[in-house]
């Protein structure tokens, strides 16, 4: 069971209030029409999926309903930090 700090609510809440939304920091291509099939496919579907540190997007679904980012170890499940959308992580995955 994760105990997650929501940076918007500024409180620790239980995992059940949150949903994981996959890899964070995936910028939408600025000009989708100019993308090749490969570039567009990789934007839509291809993911990092590391065993170790991972930056991911979470949503406080049963709380403030806002999105935020989390740096978490996918092996030990330790949460290194949470930060708001638009901010950069201080603990950086390779």
């Amino acid at each position: 069971m994760f105990h997650i700090y929501c940076p918007h609510c500024a409180e620790y809440r239980e995992e059940e209030e949150f949903h994981a939304k996959g890899q964070a920091h995936i910028p939408r291509p600025l000009d989708p029409e100019a993308c090749s099939d490969k570039e567009w496919g990789e934007y839509l579907f291809f993911r990092k999926n590391p065993r170790g540190l991972h930056h991911e997007l979470w949503v406080h679904a049963a709380g403030c309903r806002k999105f935020f980012n989390m740096t978490r170890d996918t092996q030990t499940y330790e949460i290194k930090e949470v930060y708001k959308i638009g901010e950069q992580p201080s603990v950086v995955a390779e």
Partner: peptide, 16 residues
């Protein structure tokens, strides 16, 4: 698979 793919230098459309 993602770990082996990383050694090979590409990503897969997979999440574990």
């Amino acid at each position: 698979s993602g770990v082996i793919a990383k050694m090979a230098g590409f990503e897969l459309p997979l999440e574990s």
